[in-house]
Structures are given as C-alpha cells and as structure tokens.
Nucleic acid binder design. Structure first.
Lengths: 220, 220
DNA sequence: GACCAAATGAACCAACTGGTACAATTTACC
DNA sequence: GGTAAATTGTACCAGTTGGTTCATTTGGTC
C-alpha cells in the first residue's frame, strides 16, 4: 500500500527480464489477497492468482511453497496491518470517556474501510482458524488492544465515569461485534432486510449507534 | 429433525432396494448440510456428500440438479428453521422491557445452539448472498422479526421505559451482532485472545453482557 | 399382469487444478 | 570474465471433481 512501485533497478545491458524478488513477492501477495478475499481458500485458483500477477505460477511456488503457504502469508500480512493500526492509536492524553468513544469509532471505521480484512477473518474462521494457529508470526504478539482498553476502562472507573465490574475482553468483543457484523453480513442483511449497511447515507447512523451502545454499556 | 425414520414400507417380494423419495431427499440434505457447513460451497465435495448419504451421487443430481442447487436447498432449509423460530416467539403478553430482554436472550441462545446456521450465513455472505438472492422461497417472507421488535419497542416507548428515536432494524442488528459474533468468530477469538467463547463457563457471562448491552441501549 | 413413470445403481469421463521437471537467465562476488 | 547461487520461463502431468450415460428396478394403475 505504501509504495506499490516495483523499483526495477537501472539495467546495464538489456536483459530479457530483471530480477526483483521483493517486487515479485509483493505482486504475488497482492494478487493472492484479491483472489482469496473474493473466493476463499478452496475457491481461489492458483492459476487465477498467477494470471493477476506480473509473473508466473512458478514463482508462487518458489516463494510460498504451496497454496496454503501463500494463504498464510496473506493472513499474516493482514494481521500485521491491524496490529500496526492498533499500536498507532494514541488515546492516552484523552479523558477515558472520550478515549473510549474515539477507540470505538476508529475500530468501526477500520472495519468499514477494510472489508477485505473482515472477509479474510470470516474465511479463516470457516477454517476454524487453523492457519492462525499454525502461523508462528501471529502467535507471538497481539493482545495490545486489550491492554489499551483495560487502561482506558480502569481510568474511567477510577474517575467515576464507568461502572466497575466489566472485563476488558468483553468490552473489546462488544466493540468488535458491532463493527464487524455490518461488514461481514452486509450481503445477507441487504437481501433479507433490503438495507445496504455500507451505503454512505446509512453507515454514519450505524456508526453512531455502535459508539452510543458501547458508551451506554460502560456508564453507570 | 422431527422424524428421521425413513419408513420403509413392508415389502412383498424382496426388492434389492426400496423406493423412498422423501427419505432420500432428507438424507441427502442432511449430509449436504454437514459437508457445506464444514467446508463451504467450493470446499465441499459432492462425492463426500454422496458417501455420507445412504444413497448415491446419482440421486443428488436427480433431486437437486447440481451442486449449487443442493447448496441452495440447504440454505433455504436453514432460513425456514430460523423463521419458524422467530414466529414461535410469544412475547406479546410480557411488559416491553421483559419482552425485549427475553427476545435478546432467545436470539443469543439460538445462535449459540446453532453454529451450523451461523457458519452457513457466513459462507453465504462470502458469496455475497448470491444464492439468497436467487432463491425464490426466501425472497417472499422474512421481516417478521423486525415487526416483533418494533411492536415491543414502541410499546416500551409509550410506557416510558425506552427512549424514543431508535429504529427497529438498528435494534435487531445490535442484538444479532452481539449474538452472531461470538459464534462466527469463535475460532479466531480463541487463537488471538486465548478465550473460548463457546465454553460453558464463559458463554453465560457473555450472554448476560449481550442482554445488558441491548437493554442499556434502549433505556433512557 | 401388463404398462409406464418415477426412482435408483454402477461405471465412466472431460475438464480442471495444484504442483513439478527441466532448463535458462541474471546477479553478486571474486 | 568466470563461477555459483538466486531467480525466472515453459511445458507438462497425475489426481481430483462435478457431472453424465446407460441400463435397471420399483410401485402404482388399469
């Protein structure tokens, strides 16, 4: 996302192709993300990914071993991103209630703006999070968001703003659920109820409802 | 579900097999449900469904046309069930706050008790609810749950129990989100946070939190 | 008990799909 | 400019998969 540029170094002679491992890797990962997000793990076709790529199927297997290895790489990349997002939150300076409302809003927006992430998490859950379990990268980190929430929440309780007795995880799950569901179930909601929760004239209201709901959950 | 019994009529001679269209249909549908729920539409294998069935692959195509036809039939059956559940709710006699709390609890329980339904809805959303759209059966009904909620909500507003200005759909989506998410994302939540939301010692607390959250959303 | 539509069985197949064998080319490094 | 390791291209394949062909059996009807 930051720099999509493949950066082909200036070539002296005139090689039929230029080596660019990192560029190839990124190109494959992006094509794979698009394909997996759209069709799931079993629905995705390696040949289709290869076709979307600047390079060939051969490279996919060279860099990622097999289809699942590629899928795992896509998952890891997405979790990396949301972790960076969570780390990037800077709410320390705000009073607890404002911090929590802002956190809920940010979380809602992140989901609304990244349906690919939401779909990938759905797909991974269909597979019982088997690949999350396998991944060595993902096992190591996380939980930072829970710490953030706990800190804000305890500050809020100390300040008399929030009622005591709640679990940080419970708060996080509530925020997540209210942020995730509109995106993950957008298609079926639209079919069944005729409302498109992603439409620009509906989303803001749903966003406000989500934030309000979280704040009402916390206050006395 | 009601009577699994295949009812082989008493045979006169000794036929190598007994005709039983309804039994065969049901047997196929059940096998298909299990397979689709576990592996999704593209991940499911028709041969595997056939193997789980008392009959042969031939019959699947005889009764359901093709793989997607079978999938659609499974989806329709599940939506039939939840519609029956929603219709079966009898909350009219209760005061609005109790009715709403009970509805939230029932909805939560239905999701917790029917992970197959939840997974199927996830899978269908991965496919952009394309099959819900195609299905003629599903297009005709639904919305009853929204009416139920609206009635309760307006009663609550009239009685001064609930704050005005909310949409019935918004209330339903909040209840659904809080009921759906724990089940749909159970695997990834467990991987990332180490908590199994389906565990019998955790589920009741989450249930109570969900109900509380809904009620706090409604009250003044 | 003859007849026919509905229901079922068993083997088969063409297309697809993940993955590979075999080289060829490029680049870093001396 | 020679050498080896890293990187890429091309053609190919064996197993799988959704779907079908062809023949047979069953059960109701007259």
């Amino acid at each position: 996302m930051e720099k999509t540029d493949t950066a082909p170094r200036p070539d002296r002679k005139s090689p039929s192709w230029t080596q660019d491992p990192e560029g190839v890797r990124r190109s494959i990962l992006e094509a794979a993300r698009i394909e997996f997000v759209e069709h799931g793990l079993s629905g995705a076709r390696v040949d289709e990914i290869a076709a979307k790529t600047a390079t060939s199927k051969r490279m996919i297997y060279y860099y990622f071993g097999d289809k699942e290895g590629l899928y795992r790489a896509v998952i890891e990349e997405m979790y990396d991103r949301i972790r960076r997002f969570e780390r990037g939150l800077d709410l320390g300076a705000l009073p607890p209630d404002e911090a929590m409302a802002k956190l809920a809003g940010f979380t809602f927006d992140y989901h609304a703006d990244n349906p690919d992430f939401v779909r990938m998490v759905m797909i991974e859950n269909i597979h019982h999070a088997r690949h999350l379990a396998t991944s060595t990268k993902i096992a190591t980190l996380n939980l930072s968001i829970i710490d953030v929430i706990r800190e804000i929440y305890e500050g809020g309780v100390a300040a008399g703003l929030f009622r005591p007795g709640l679990e940080a995880l419970d708060i996080h799950l509530t925020i997540s659920a209210l942020s995730f569901y509109n995106v993950s179930n957008r298609a079926s909601i639209r079919q069944v109820f005729g409302h498109d929760m992603g439409a620009p004239d509906i989303l803001p209201q749903r966003r406000q409802t989500a934030i309000d709901t979280v704040m009402r959950m916390l206050r006395h």
